[in-house]
Amino acid sequence: MVINKRAGYNRKQLRKRYGKSLNTISNWCTRKSYHSVPELYDLVELLDCKVDDLYVRSKENED
């Protein structure tokens, strides 16, 4: 999920908006960890996209 490049937001701006550490924001951006559902819906609104746009479907989930 490449959230900070979608709408020109950098990691420091996202850190301030969500009150998270830069490490946490970096983990969101590199798919090492994920945000909460409320944060997800806020990101969708912020980035003007769909939930599906923020995720890459892995082969494990394709059945």
Rank of each mutant, 00 (worst) to 15 (best):
R57A: 03
Y41W: 15
V51N: 04
E39K: 11
Y34G: 08
Y18F: 14
R17V: 10
N27M: 11
E39G: 15
W28A: 13
S33C: 11
L22G: 06
N4I: 08
Y34W: 12
R15A: 15
N23S: 04
E39R: 13
E62P: 02
L47N: 00
N10H: 09
K50D: 14
L47F: 03
L40N: 05
L22K: 06
S58P: 01
C49P: 00
K20W: 00
K5Q: 10
Q13F: 13
R17L: 10
N23A: 06
N61M: 03
D42C: 07
V2Q: 15
V51K: 12
K5A: 10
C49N: 01
R57Y: 04
S26P: 03
G19H: 10
S33F: 00
D52W: 03
L43S: 01
G8Y: 11
K59D: 08
V37A: 15
I3S: 01
R15W: 10
R6L: 11
L22T: 10
R15G: 02
T24N: 09
G19F: 14
L54G: 01
K12I: 09
S58H: 05
K32Q: 07
V2M: 09
V51F: 07
L14T: 03
G8M: 03
L43N: 00
D42W: 06
V56W: 02
N27I: 00
I25N: 07
D42R: 09
V37R: 12
L22F: 10
L46V: 08
Y9D: 03
